[in-house]
Design a protein around this nucleic acid. Structure first.
Lengths: 352, 352
DNA sequence: GCTATTAAGTGGAACGTTCCAATAAATCAA
DNA sequence: TTGATTTATTGGAACGTTCCACTTAATAGC
């Protein structure tokens, strides 16, 4: 069924009665070809079932038009939203980005980066996996491939970063909890090998300091940055002698886990324990109770990252400025009413 | 900073004092090279900062090792799970799949397929966008690229499909609702241009027929296959003179939308209106109330699709058998207690 | 009618690999 | 020693494009 060998521009040339060079020019939409000829060639292209061989072309052309997006966790809807934002701008630039998932695994990430490089990508937008060593990107710099980090940064790297204002977001969230009357606060999820973690925890701590929460009333529980992590964090926190009454979570996934754990213990997220998330994924609004979260304009950051990438490619450089996106706290229901208006804050009895 | 021109095997050859052919052999791990030579070459590879040019290699080699995964909606966690399942098996085969998103847009899909073909993919796993015409895949067949459909199929296409037993799943779900005592049932979401829709609706209808529900008591409301669609469907259904008391939703996203709409109307999903989802995404278990849904073993289907693809590539053919995955109904809380044990089924008055 | 100029198209040399056929050196069989 | 075999390595011809320099034909300027 399938036609024997794949057709090349020579086959088209023969079919249309022109030279291979002419076909090449038509393929590139050059204006040097007489319209009637171009039509004839295009017909031949259809007739022989030609498919363009970008690998061969890239051998001669300086740059390919492939851009890679390396995502550390596709199952986190946050990153899916980010990817969609990027795709929007790439689409209008006529380029198809290829997405690859590293599943938060540095070894896998290494493979993925290698594979994309071999494919000759024009640029890479990366949300690095946890535990990434900067050396992983040395090779890319050497090869002169433009790289942009999205959401996450590496400790001492000089690669441009597009990320939200994590410090400020965390500050806002903590201030909100304190204004609600909470005096023993927790920070749930994440680990210190993530720069994002340090930023968010930093903002959280600064708010506590500034607004008069004693250091011993601040609990930090590290954990995975997903639902399971949230579950575990809450369990740990509740074993304390003086457990916190509210928590800022590393991200929304952790917050969902915390709410789940509360429910399992017959506690009501909000009235019994206040929880704030980070990222404001679309699910946040639809949860029961709706999650108060720090909105970071995910899709907007994705778009921004894509734009920076396009600039980088056009200017043939590898340096660009960081971009820190504005954040704002979206208050919903997961922090309940103000504490001082209620009688006993840490209810444990299960109202079935 | 970046070394001038990118290094080629010739640079390596010069550095190591061998010929380009020897380098090529080393690159392919051939056993024909004396170990000491291989070591020397490998050192040179490191030294010159070489990156393999797969495009050039594919010019000579018959087949590339790139596999494309074309997903119709990345923001639906269901497809993310599917992708992760596939990745697992490709990873262990040493292949990095490239994911591309079509956002349910046939035009975008066309671009994506074109781009992947030009890249010279060895195979394609596709979950086709709604409204795809079979002609979109004609070109692929012509080029002899193996294609596997995942989850969705095209009306008359001969391309192998990996999908769950939609008919049976829907039958089980409807039977469950009927057993609970519901007599007026609805099917929410989806449109008839999807074969999946026809299969699920078919199973639903068969259960209604078989188990004694009159045709006029069966309501079908088409809609988008996401949260928004679910919201709209419920609103439509409740305007009926005799509204249904339960619904099977096209997928979990629709079901979440329906539950949200119920909440907005101060109705309780479960007791006031029973809802069943389809796909059993991980969120289903964690919703309030937890969603009863048809589990399809998403990741398993992804793995299966990937295996079929690998077989197809190895056997250099383009034909394979379909695979219909087993399903089962996971009963949780979104259908409430049995109806006959309650007083009035269709509560509309808002108990604030 | 002659040389410029423009328009339309073409041939050939890359580009970075792979792989076949060929070679050179070493080992073996007799 | 000679020829056959094995082992390690190599040159060269593809592969399917692009792009530069070149040709040819038509048009313009005078």
């Amino acid at each position: 069924m399938a036609s024997r060998a794949k057709a090349t521009i020579f086959d088209i040339a023969r079919e249309a009665g022109v030279s291979k060079s002419t076909v090449s020019l038509v393929l590139q939409g050059s204006g040097l070809i007489r319209p009637e000829t171009a039509v004839r060639v295009r017909k031949a292209i259809e007739d022989v079932g030609y498919v363009y061989n970008r690998g061969a072309a890239n051998l001669r052309k300086a740059h390919s038009n492939v851009i890679g997006m390396v995502i550390n966790d596709l199952t986190n809807p946050f990153f899916a939203e980010l990817a969609v934002g990027m795709e929007r701008v790439f689409q209008s630039a006529g380029i198809v980005p290829f997405i690859a998932n590293t599943a938060e695994n540095p070894v896998r990430q290494e493979e993925v980066l290698k594979s994309l490089m071999e494919q000759g990508v024009a640029g890479l937008i990366v949300s690095p996996a946890r535990g990434t060593t900067p050396s992983a990107f040395r090779r890319l710099e050497l090869a002169g491939v433009p790289v942009v980090f999205a959401m996450r940064r590496l400790p001492e790297s000089r690669i441009p970063v597009i990320a939200p204002d994590n410090h400020r977001g965390a500050y806002l969230a903590a201030a909100h909890l304190i204004a609600k009357g909470h005096r023993r606060l927790a920070f749930f999820g994440g680990t210190s090998d993530l720069v994002v973690y340090q930023e968010r925890l930093g903002g959280f701590r600064e708010a506590c300091d500034t607004l008069g929460i004693a250091a011993r009333d601040v609990l930090v529980v590290d954990g995975e940055t997903n639902r399971r992590g949230g579950l575990a964090c809450l369990e740990t926190a509740l074993t304390m002698a003086e457990p916190p009454t509210a928590a800022l979570c590393f991200n929304d996934a952790v917050a969902f886990g915390v709410m789940l754990a509360l429910r399992k213990r017959r506690l009501e997220p909000g009235p019994d324990f206040a929880v704030v998330g980070f990222d404001d994924v679309v699910e946040a609004e639809h949860y029961m109770p709706a999650l108060t979260s720090v909105a970071v304009d995910t899709a907007g950051l994705g778009e921004r990252a894509a734009h920076v990438m396009l600039k980088l490619i056009q200017s043939r450089t590898t340096r660009a400025e960081d971009h820190i996106g504005a954040v704002n706290l979206v208050v919903r229901e997961s922090c309940g009413p103000d504490l001082r208006t209620r009688s006993r804050p840490t209810g444990t009895g299960g109202a079935a």
